[in-house]
Every structure is written in structure tokens, then in C-alpha cells.
Design a protein around this nucleic acid. Structure first.
Lengths: 198, 198
DNA sequence: GTCTATAGGAGGATAGAC
DNA sequence: GTCTATCCTCCTATAGAC
């Protein structure tokens, strides 16, 4: 690992623990094993480190995003159970990536003082997901696979639970019991399935 | 309003906007209209102001808490619809109290660096409410008023939505459209009612 | 109870030698 | 690319006059 990478990874760990403001350049360089002044050979300011972390996440999103077309074709073939299982699996993948969890935790902390972080969180972790799920439920209703409802209402019922889990376990617990969380998500999917059954 | 009260109210407003760390004693005293040194005649440190705010909230909780017995008797008489309507009304009352919203927002921000704030939030805004709702649904199931389920699962389905609303609208928006939020809560209650109907 | 003046410390950042 | 030395700014808090 290069010094620059070491700085970035250390910053991610420390920012996720205490937030950007409560971590000093001194804290980072002490952990990395260099002097403060040496850091400025790799990043021109402390702020640039944070921006590099944000860009890391954006890159991650860009590579992970699937085209509208592909999504549309996938949905056409899926049953409600398959869709809910897929959602749960996506969440599980997130739970298995500690570095990604750390970066989202930084966004969580920073969103109170940084409008950019707040907007990013809102868009990528909430509103886009709600819109997507809304489309899926709409198609399923039109195909007569589930009970007729306002699809946006059903999408909120489905996804609000995920946000609750994020809030209560990922943000509020130091150590997450992944098995327990997966169980709760499973129970939610079951409840929703039965509520949507015709 | 005494100077001490002015300091407290100003601190609540500023801490809710930017968090404890990003508000200096200078910021507070500038707003109040006194010099920094004068503040120390009313609070022995900046930290004590935050603690006074926490105590304010705790006092609020103590006066608002109803005994287990009263709750038990209330539940016995309630239909599921009445209970869900009551929950929505409690939430509306919160939405109508800007000072209380500010204080909870401070707790929201501070929970990432202050374990006490985190524990407080977890207990009073989430776990106690979940436990309470769980008891209510259990009684209703035993009385045959709603479909049989694990009452804890139903309580999560019911309350996770409230936390989602808190997260997405109270924490993430500068200006909350209260009418829109009330509408979403209403739609949630309707969905849940129909899902629990025998 | 308010003021002026200042202490004492931590933070981000730069200059310049090696 | 790393180091030592240092700068400047902002912060919380205190001393002591009025």
C-alpha cells in the first residue's frame, strides 16, 4: 500500500469513528507513521482527503448502476417473492463490506454540516431506491401479481424498514449482529409478502 | 427572558443547525449580545450548556411518561384503528413543537460522538416505543382483534415507518412539509390496518 | 453581571533542509 | 518524499476592573 493509500484508509477508519471535525491531521499522520507536513505531499488539504473519500463512493455507484432497460427486463420476469428476496440479498452484500459501511457512516455523520453529503445520502440511499421500488410494484400490480394499492405507498412500506434497520443498527450500534439483522429483514419481507397477497 | 435563558435558547438553535462542535462560545454570545467572558457567569463551561439542554429533554420525558397501569387500561379499551390513530396524533404533536424538534436534532447530531446521546436516542425514541407497541399488538391478537403474528414483528412494521419519516424528513430536510408528512403517516396506518385485518 | 485583556492550547498549513 | 521548525488562527476559559 502506498503512503497515499495508507492515508486514505486511515482517514476512512477515523472519520467513520468520530467524524471529520473530530479527527485532526495529527491523528491521521500519527496512525500512518509520518509527520504532519508529509501528508501535504499527498493531499493539499484535510478537506481534499474527505473529497477523495466521497469520490471513491461515487465511483462505486457508477460502476454498480444498472441501466433502466436491464432493470425493466429483470422486473418483467420476477415474482414478488423473487423481488423481495433480491432486495434482501442486496442489503446483505452491503452488510458484508466493512469499508463501504465505514464510508456510509462518514456520510451519515457529515450530512448534518455538509449539504452535499446530505443530498447524496437522500438521493442515492433513499429517493432513488423508493422510485425504483415504486416502479417495480406498479408493474406487479398491473400484471395482477399483487393487491392493488398506490405503488408509492407500498414502496415506502417496503423500503422504510430498510432505512429503519440502517438507522437503528448500522448507525447506532458499534458492533452489528449481522445474523440478527438478516433475520429481521427476512421477517419484514415475509410480512410484506403476505400483506400484498391477493 | 433572563440572560441565562437567552443563552440556552440561542444555543439550542445554533447546536441544532450545526452541532455542538461547530458552534463556538463566540457564536452564542454574539447572538445573545454579550461578551464571551459574561457567558461564564451563567454556565461554567460550554459543555454545561449542552448538559442543560439534555436535562431539559429528560424533564420533558419524565412529565410526559404515563404509568404502565394507565397504559394497560387504555389498551384494553382500544380498537386497532383507535390505537394507530392515537400513534399518528402523538407524532403530530411532536411535529408542532419546533423547540422539541431542535433538541432531538441536537441529539441526532451528537449521537455520533457522544455515547450518552446515542443511548438516550436508542432507548427513548426507539426501543421503548417498540416494546410498548409490541405489548399493544400482543393484547390485540389475544383478543382476536387482529391477525395472529409475532407481535414484535408487527411492532417493527408499525414503528419502523415512523423512524423512516424522522430520518428522511426531520433529519434531512431544512423545511418540513408537515401536511405531506401527516399524509404519509396516514397512508401507512391505513396500509397496516388492512394488513392486520382478519 | 458586564466588561477588557489575556492566557494557554490545539488545529491546519507552509518553508526549507536533507 | 520525509523531516524539523514555525506560523497563524481559532478556540475555551480566567483574572480583575467597573
Amino acid at each position: 500500500m502506498t503512503t497515499k493509500e495508507k492515508i486514505l484508509e486511515t482517514a476512512i477508519t477515523l472519520f467513520a469513528e468520530r467524524g471529520y471535525n473530530d479527527v485532526s491531521v495529527r491523528d491521521i499522520t500519527r496512525e500512518v507513521g509520518i509527520k504532519e507536513s508529509s501528508l501535504y505531499n499527498h493531499f493539499s488539504s484535510k478537506q481534499k482527503i474527505l473529497e477523495a473519500i466521497y469520490e471513491d463512493l461515487i465511483k462505486n455507484f457508477e460502476t454498480a448502476t444498472v441501466s433502466e432497460e436491464v432493470i425493466a427486463r429483470m422486473i418483467e420476469k420476477m415474482t414478488p417473492e423473487e423481488f423481495l428476496t433480491l432486495s434482501a440479498e442486496n442489503f446483505d452484500r452491503y452488510l458484508g463490506d466493512p469499508r463501504l459501511i465505514k464510508i456510509w457512516r462518514i456520510i451519515s455523520i457529515e450530512r448534518f454540516r455538509d449539504e452535499r453529503a446530505n443530498a447524496f445520502f437522500k438521493k442515492y440511499l433513499i429517493d432513488n431506491a423508493l422510485e425504483y421500488q415504486s416502479k417495480v410494484f406498479d408493474i406487479m400490480m398491473k400484471k395482477g401479481l399483487i393487491k392493488a394499492h398506490d405503488p408509492r405507498v407500498v414502496a415506502r412500506e417496503s423500503y422504510a424498514f430498510m432505512i429503519f434497520i440502517y438507522f437503528r443498527y448500522l448507525e447506532m450500534e458499534k458492533e452489528v449482529d449481522i445474523k440478527e439483522v438478516k433475520q429481521m429483514v427476512l421477517e419484514h419481507m415475509k410480512f410484506l409478502s403476505s400483506a400484498l397477497q391477493k
